Computed example of a mutant assay.
Amino acid sequence: MNPANTTGADGTTVYYGDLEAPHQVQVFLEMRDRGSRRVVESLLGTLRKDADDGKYVVKFHFAGMIDDTAGGSGSRRALSALGAAADAGQRQFADYLAALFAAQPFPPGYDHFSETPVLLSAADAVDGLRSADFDRKVTEGTYLNWAGVAIADFELFGVVGTPIAWYDEQVLQVVKEEDGPAVSPQEFLAQLPGR
């Protein structure tokens, strides 16, 4: 079973905006990755605005490499919870994505996203997300299998590491240097054709 607002061959890509938009921005993230957090904090608002304006659809792909290297299941469990938020709506998904990154455990080796109370607590910051249905899906791990397939599908894109973004087939710079700060919204938009 896949969450709402997903697409792709296995339904493992969460999208924000209209799939019929003329362009797409694909964003590759991992929930335990600090660079992914910085990029979401800097650029999510801009991505949402442009998607709301119909300029492109944003497609989110999620990795689970830190689960493999540091141990644990936090990236997968956080993604499962994001699936439950996608069922509630695109706005709730995007707001919850931001809330989870704001609550991201540090250092990444701390696997607090594997703990249901942490995932539910982050959802308190999202207007209209907490419900009996959402809480049940997070607690029961309704989308854990889906999250595992999504993480496996990540490798199909040939992307090494996170965060990365593409505009159609064009690779976009989203961090200034490896392990460095995210680009600003203005620097991001300047890379898009026609801007």
Rank of each mutant, 00 (worst) to 15 (best):
A4T: 14
A4Q: 15
A4F: 14
N5K: 06
T6P: 14
T6G: 11
G8L: 09
G8W: 11
G8I: 08
G8D: 12
G11I: 09
T12F: 10
T13F: 11
T13W: 05
T13D: 12
V14K: 13
V14Y: 07
Y15P: 05
Y16Q: 02
G17M: 10
G17D: 01
G17I: 11
L19G: 00
E20I: 07
E20S: 15
P22E: 00
H23E: 02
Q24K: 12
V25N: 03
V25M: 03
V25C: 06
Q26V: 06
V27A: 00
V27L: 11
F28G: 10
F28R: 07
L29P: 12
M31V: 06
D33F: 10
R34S: 08
G35M: 00
G35D: 11
G35C: 06
G35E: 04
S36H: 07
S36R: 11
S36W: 02
R37D: 07
R38D: 09
R38E: 05
R38Y: 14
V40T: 12
E41A: 15
E41M: 04
S42P: 05
S42H: 11
S42N: 10
L43D: 01
L43W: 09
G45T: 08
G45P: 13
G45W: 10
T46N: 04
T46R: 03
R48I: 03
R48C: 05
K49A: 15
K49H: 10
A51K: 14
A51M: 01
D52F: 07
D52C: 04
D53P: 02
D53N: 09
K55D: 01
K59F: 13
K59H: 08
H61R: 14
M65W: 13
M65G: 14
D67K: 04
D67V: 01
D68I: 12
D68T: 15
D68H: 15
T69F: 10
T69Q: 05
G72I: 01
G72F: 10
S73A: 04
R76W: 13
R77C: 02
R77H: 05
R77Y: 12
R77I: 00
A78G: 03
A78L: 03
A78V: 01
L79F: 02
L79I: 00
L79D: 13
L82F: 08
L82K: 02
L82D: 08
G83T: 11
G89E: 00
G89C: 00
Q90L: 09
Q90M: 14
Q90N: 12
